[in-house]
């Protein structure tokens, strides 16, 4: 491992402190928004990709990246935004999905081959609170671009689903 490699690993570990403000249980690394860190001497480029084209949390995350690294004594940080490959919920690990469920957000299923099947005609989603699959889609769109709103007939709780895209 070269010096640059170990520096990169160190910076990636620090960036695990940066959470998505709208899903504060996941770090930007677990979410897949953090793509890479490029180290060249004192200059650090953090490569990020947005979840959705209009994600309003992106700016907050970029500011947070720069502030977090500044706290660790890394001053020359630039954020580079890339759009390809396009972000997918398939990048969220099983471990991170378990964190989402524990937080009360039903994790995304694997992205299906036929994306044009309406949400309400898909396999039922398990309630993150009582695990009942007797749930219904209340709204295909939710409080943020990445979520839908469901309702559990088992425990009579509304809950959010992380949309699979």
């Amino acid at each position: 491992m070269t010096v640059a490699d170990s520096r990169r690993e160190e910076i990636l570990a620090w960036l695990d402190e940066v959470k998505d403000p709208e899903v504060p249980v996941l770090s930007i690394r677990e979410l897949g928004v953090l793509r890479d860190v490029e180290v060249s001497g004192d200059d650090v480029v953090v490569v990020m990709t947005p979840t959705y084209s209009g994600c309003p949390a992106m700016h907050a995350m970029e500011v947070d990246v720069v502030a977090t690294l500044a706290r660790h004594g890394v001053p020359n940080v630039r954020v580079k935004t890339v759009y390809a490959p396009a972000w997918t919920t398939d990048w969220i690990s099983d471990e991170a999905k378990a964190k989402l469920a524990a937080y009360g957000i039903a994790p995304p299923a694997r992205v299906e081959a036929d994306e044009l099947v309406p949400l309400r005609r898909r396999a039922p989603v398990a309630c993150p609170y009582c695990h009942s699959v007797n749930t219904i889609v209340r709204s295909e769109f939710g409080s943020t671009a990445c979520k839908a709103i469901l309702f559990c007939n088992g425990c009579h709780q509304p809950f959010e689903l992380f949309k699979a895209i």
């Binding site: 084209s53 759009y83 390809a84 396009a86 972000w87 994306e115 309406p118 949309k163 895209i165």
Partner: peptide
């Protein structure tokens, strides 16, 4: 144009979600 291709790939995922909703 790679930049355009990247934006389109991202937008396509969103557009598919939209058309599914509006068709319904």
């Amino acid at each position: 144009n790679q930049a355009l291709a990247g934006i389109a790939a991202k937008a396509l995922k969103e557009a598919k979600y939209h058309v599914r909703h509006t068709a319904e």
